Simulated assay, not measured.
Amino acid sequence: MSSAVPAQGVSAPVLLVGVDFGLPHFDGELEELGLLAQTAGMHPVARITCKRKAPDAALFVGSGKADEIRALAQMHGAVEVLFDQSLSPAQQRNLERHIELPVNDRTLLILEIFAQRARSHEGKLQVELAKLQYVSTRLVRRWSHLERQTGGIGARGGPGEKQIELDRRMIGDAIKRTRDRLVKVQRQRSTQRRQRERRDTFNISLVGYTNAGKSTLFNALVKARAYAADQLFATLDTTTRQLYLADAGRSVSLSDTVGFIRDLPHGLVDAFQATLQEAIDADLLLHVVDASNSDFPEQMAQVERVLQEIGAADIPQILVFNKLDAMPDERRPADLQDQYEVAGHILPRLFVSARSGEGLENLRHALAARVLATRADMTPGDAVELPDVLP
């Protein structure tokens, strides 16, 4: 199986490919795929897109476009081709034979980034499980050494079948071991969570699209030093700290969670269930949005889809439109707090800059108001009127 990650210190030249099937979120400039590639340590040297009504069963893009991709890759010296969509094992294998270069898809690219970024024992186990599940479907992809292992007369199956079956069993055993180890870690986290519940802690989780500035906001609110960077998936492991709210006269538990992204592989959603459990068990979600990104409505929709998938769609939310300092003057809001409709629900919205600190005091007041309302036995679905803290 070809690797999507170059040797350390080497920036591998890659060709980016996107196929427009008429979906509204198609990234015609392949900007996000380029950022993912750069995050993984690669260097996009060329990009190519095409339109199709449906994927080609064999090559995903058709033979003519595959020829064009091969020629463009050769022209620019690309050593690998990255597709913005998920490829089936057969499509991936056929493309590699046709293009004569390693071909990988968005799913593996995200998995590789997660593997690079995971720091905690739990995070590493979650990534390992997701990668094993991905690899298990692609055992017949690049096993040229298996051709020597032919069956005897009358044997069923073709070349290399015994070796592939052995590999499949080995990966199956590895998946089971990793799941068992992950269950133990999840039990430990569950115990910690129950201890917080016994202390009557109000739990707030930061959620949002990757690179929306969650970790920067987290650090600004709790004065922590969680890793934050202007890159995709800077944070993979959940970090929890206490945040004191003077207006409420108490502390709350604030958790920074992994960022979401379009077409987040289902294997990662499943594997990161323990990490995302912090969002599922939260009393309040701070949905952090990159207000400076013109595609923020689509990014918000992707976050809502993941929240729905993990069972956290009904948890109360406050929208935090971050990166106010990066917004052009003509788009800067007249009011730093208002309301915004999401999936038919009117939610409170605050504009902040986690980097400069602008609007953070408004956010603290809003959080205190929500905590006080909950303490007064207000039902979770009721609206909370944010305090008028603006001049």
Score class of each variant (00 low, 15 high):
L372N: 13
A130H: 08
G77R: 04
T210D: 10
V185F: 04
Q302D: 14
L347H: 11
H266R: 12
L236N: 07
T107N: 06
P159F: 07
G77Y: 12
E147C: 11
N104H: 11
Q186R: 13
A220Y: 01
D20S: 06
L33V: 12
A115Y: 00
D84L: 08
L232T: 12
D247G: 06
Q277R: 11
V207S: 06
E31Y: 02
L243A: 01
I318T: 05
A373T: 08
E385F: 02
E278I: 00
L386H: 06
R193H: 07
L87S: 02
P55W: 11
F351R: 03
L336M: 13
L139I: 14
I310T: 09
R225K: 15
R262K: 14
H365F: 11
V5T: 15
E304W: 02
G158R: 09
R364W: 00
A212K: 08
T201L: 12
F296S: 02
Q163E: 15
E298I: 13
L146M: 07
G160K: 02
D20C: 06
K65W: 02
Q8L: 14
G151C: 06
A271V: 13
L16C: 10
E165H: 14
S253P: 03
F83S: 02
L87A: 04
Q188F: 03
I204K: 04
L276M: 13
S255L: 05
Q85G: 08
A73N: 08
H98N: 08
T374E: 12
R355W: 06
Q302F: 06
S190P: 00
T374L: 05
L182M: 10
S2P: 15
S3N: 09
R250T: 13
